[in-house]
C-alpha cells in the first residue's frame, strides 16, 4: 500500500499542497487533472525524484520519504519513455537486471518472458530509435517491469500515441495489470482514458487533490465545482429498464428516452453523457432514427469559448456544448426545435 501524508512541494511553477492519498495493493489508480495540475510532480515524488521537505510517503509500511529512487523498487515509465538510445531493445529491457547482478542467462530469460508478454519479442535486436510510439511504450514498460518492482508508475503513457494505438495499449495495460497484479499509478489528463483504466482515481487541480473515488463516484457525484467543471458536468440519465435486443445490444429506457447501445452485462442503472458528446443539428439528420432525439432550446449560456445549450427532450433536460462560431453560424434561437444525436462511443454506463 502507498500512503501519501500531508505532502507539500514546490518545483518550479508546480505546487503540491497538503496532499493525502492512499493507494491500495494491486490497485490500478489513475491521477487525473488538467495540464499544469502537478500530476507528474506527484508521480515523481512517489518515484523519489524530488527531495521532500514537508510530508511523508510510505510504501508497504515503510517510510520512503527520503529513500533514493534506486532503493524504492519502483518501475517508472515517463511520458517520453526515455529509452536509452545507445542500447538496443534487449539491452534496454535488461538494463536494470544488470545492476542486480543477475546471471546473464537469467536476465535474458526474464527479458524474453516480458517481451513475449508485451508482444515485442520480434523487436529484441532492434535499435530503439527505429521503433514506433506504441513499440517504444511497450519496451519502456518491459524495462520498468524487468526488475520486478513493487509498483508501476506511468506518466501519461498514451500521451504521444495516435487514437488507435492508444486504445489498443489501454487494453494491453489492463491485461498486463490483471496478469501481474502490480500496484499501478497512472497519470493522465484524458478523461476517457482515466474512466476506462481506473479502479479508483483522484482528481488533481492546481496541486490540490479535489476528489478521490471510483470513476462512478467521481462522474456521478462530483464533490466540488472544480471537479464538475473539469469533468464537463455530464448529463446523468437514470434508467428504469434495460432490455436486451440481441447482437450484444440493449435498449435502455431512461424516462421517456430510449437509447440503444452495446452492453454485455444486461443491467444499466445510469448513463453519463458529456455535453461535448451530443451533436446538435437544426435539420433532421439522415439515417435510421436511433439515439436521435428532438428537443427544444430552453437556455443558452456563454461558457469560455463555448456556448452551453440547455435542451429539453420530453421530460429530460440535456446540456450540450457548441463552439461560439458554430453556434453563431447555426443561428439557434431560444424555443427553437433542434435534433440531438448521441455519440454512442462516449456514453458511460453504470
Amino acid at each position: 500500500m502507498i500512503s501519501v501524508n500531508n505532502l507539500s512541494l514546490c518545483v518550479g511553477a508546480f505546487h503540491l499542497k497538503d496532499l493525502n492519498l492512499t493507494i491500495n495493493d494491486r490497485e490500478y489508480f489513475v491521477i487525473l487533472g488538467p495540464t499544469g495540475a502537478g500530476k507528474t510532480v506527484l508521480l515523481e515524488c512517489l518515484a523519489g525524484l524530488h527531495r521532500i521537505r514537508k510530508g511523508e510517503i510510505w510504501i508497504d509500511g515503510e517510510e520512503v520519504t527520503l529513500v533514493p529512487p534506486e532503493r524504492r523498487r519502483i518501475g517508472y515509465v515517463p511520458q517520453d519513455y526515455a529509452l536509452f538510445p545507445f542500447l538496443n531493445v534487449k539491452e534496454n529491457i535488461t538494463f536494470g537486471l544488470r545492476k542486480k547482478n543477475s546471471e546473464k542467462n537469467e536476465a535474458e530469460k526474464k527479458a524474453s518472458d516480458l517481451a513475449h508478454l508485451l508482444g515485442i519479442y520480434h523487436l529484441m535486436d532492434r535499435n530503439v530509435r527505429t521503433l514506433s510510439g506504441g513499440e517504444k511504450q511497450r519496451v519502456a514498460l518491459a524495462r520498468a517491469l524487468a526488475t520486478s518492482p513493487k509498483m508501476l508508475l506511468l506518466d501519461e503513457p498514451m500521451g504521444s500515441l495516435d487514437v488507435r494505438t492508444a486504445k489498443y495499449l489501454r487494453l494491453e495495460l489492463k491485461r498486463i495489470h490483471e496478469e501481474l497484479e502490480i500496484t499501478t499509478v497512472h497519470v493522465t489528463h484524458n478523461l476517457l482514458e482515466a474512466e476506462e483504466m481506473a479502479g479508483r482515481m483522484a482528481i488533481l487541480n492546481m496541486g490540490r487533490l479535489e476528489q478521490v473515488g471510483t470513476p462512478e463516484e467521481i462522474f456521478f457525484y462530483p464533490q466540488s465545482q472544480v471537479v464538475s467543471d473539469f469533468l464537463g458536468t455530464p448529463n446523468i440519465l437514470n434508467c428504469d429498464e434495460c432490455i436486451p435486443i440481441g447482437h450484444g445490444l440493449v435498449e435502455a429506457i431512461c424516462g421517456k428516452m430510449s437509447i440503444i447501445l452495446p452492453h454485455r452485462t444486461g443491467e444499466i442503472k445510469k448513463i453519463a453523457l458529456f455535453p461535448q458528446d451530443i451533436y446538435v443539428s437544426k435539420s433532421r439528420p439522415p439515417g435510421p432514427d436511433l439515439n436521435r432525439f428532438k428537443g427544444v432550446v430552453k437556455e443558452v449560456v456563454p461558457f469560455s469559448s463555448l456556448m452551453r445549450l440547455n435542451i429539453r427532450v420530453d421530460d429530460i433536460d440535456l446540456l450540450t456544448e457548441l463552439p461560439k462560431d458554430i453556434f453563431e453560424d447555426m443561428n439557434i434561437a431560444l424555443g427553437q426545435e433542434v435534433y440531438l444525436i448521441l455519440k454512442l462511443r462516449s456514453l458511460k454506463v453504470y
Partner: peptide
C-alpha cells in the same frame, strides 16, 4: 541530455554515480 534518462536509470536501481 534529457534528465529523464538519468531519472529512469535511478529508478532501475543505479546510484547517481553509477
Amino acid at each position: 541530455i534529457n534528465p529523464r534518462y538519468e531519472q529512469v536509470g535511478r529508478t532501475l536501481g543505479y546510484s547517481k554515480m553509477q
